[in-house]
């Protein structure tokens, strides 16, 4: 658990280095994204509902509704995308 005590113990320099590393990984991944090409005829498995991030959005909304009401956090959930890319 991300308790406050552990974050207080973490030095500011450490937190900054972790953020910089995360940003670097994100940028590197974004640059690599253009190289990752899945051809339309190879998207059979990506078209499975289990592989789509938005195929069950109403169920995801209900999940989020219930959990937000029982926990103190929100956001970072599902967005559109995934699937066959055939819109």
């Amino acid at each position: 658990m991300a308790s406050r005590s552990s974050s207080e113990l973490r030095r500011p320099g450490q937190r900054g280095r972790l953020a910089a590393l995360g940003a670097l990984l994100l940028v590197a991944s974004a640059l690599l994204a253009g190289c990752a090409t899945v051809r339309p005829e190879d998207r059979e498995f990506l078209a499975e509902p289990a592989m789509s991030f938005s195929a069950r959005s109403r169920e995801a909304a209900m999940d989020e509704h219930i959990l937000q009401n029982r926990e103190g956090s929100m956001g970072g959930g599902t967005a559109g995308g995934g699937g066959c890319g055939c819109n």
Binding site: L26, S29, A30, A33, A36, V38, D42, R43, E44, F45, L46, M51, F53, M74, G75, G76, G77, T78, A79, G80, G81, G82, G85
Partner: peptide, 17 residues
């Protein structure tokens, strides 16, 4: 959000709110 199909069997989504 950024959704990426990396291979024919792997998809990843990052979301910032």
């Amino acid at each position: 959000s950024w959704t990426q199909a990396w291979t024919s069997t792997l998809a990843v989504q990052l979301t910032a709110t």
